[in-house]
Amino acid sequence: MALFAADHDLDKRFAALARQFDDLREALAKRGDAYYEDGREAASDYYSQLAERLHETLPAIRRRGRTLERIARDHPATAAAVGLVAVGLLAGLLISRR
Rank of each mutant, 00 (worst) to 15 (best):
Y36T: 12
P59T: 01
A51H: 04
L58M: 09
R62K: 13
A34H: 07
R40W: 03
A42P: 01
A60T: 07
L50V: 05
T57C: 05
E41A: 07
L50I: 05
R64K: 12
S48G: 08
Y46C: 09
K30C: 06
Y36V: 05
T67C: 03
D45K: 04
Y36R: 15
Y46M: 12
E69F: 00
R66S: 14
H55E: 12
D33P: 03
E52K: 11
E26T: 14
E52F: 07
D38R: 05
Y35W: 07
L50F: 07
E69M: 00
A42S: 10
E37L: 04
E26C: 05
E52W: 00
R64V: 06
D33Y: 02
R66H: 13
Y46F: 10
A60L: 06
D22H: 08
G32P: 02
A60Q: 13
R25Q: 14
A29I: 00
E56A: 14
R40S: 11
Q49E: 14
G65A: 04
D22R: 08
F21S: 13
D22Q: 10
A34R: 09
R62L: 15
R64S: 15
D38I: 01
R31C: 05
I71E: 15
F21C: 10
T57F: 05
D33V: 03
S48W: 00
G65H: 03
K30V: 13
E37Q: 09
L24P: 01
A42V: 01
D23L: 06
D45R: 04
R53T: 06
R40G: 02
A51T: 02
K30Q: 14
R31S: 14
Q49L: 10
A29P: 01
Q49I: 05
A42Q: 09
A34Q: 11
D33L: 05
Y47E: 15
P59K: 02
A29F: 02
R64E: 15
G32S: 11
L54M: 11
R62G: 06
R66G: 06
L24R: 11
L68F: 06
P59I: 02
A43L: 11
A43Q: 09
R66F: 10
R64C: 11
L68A: 10
R70N: 12
Y35G: 02
L58P: 01
E69W: 00
R63P: 01
R40C: 05
D38Y: 00
A60W: 01
Y36F: 09
R53K: 13
T67D: 15
I61G: 01
L68E: 13
R64P: 02
Y46L: 15
K30W: 03
E37Y: 00
R25I: 03
E56T: 09
F21N: 13
F21V: 08
L28W: 03
G65W: 01
G32F: 00
S48D: 14
A34Y: 02
L54D: 09
D23W: 00
Y47I: 04
G32Q: 08
T67S: 12
L28N: 14
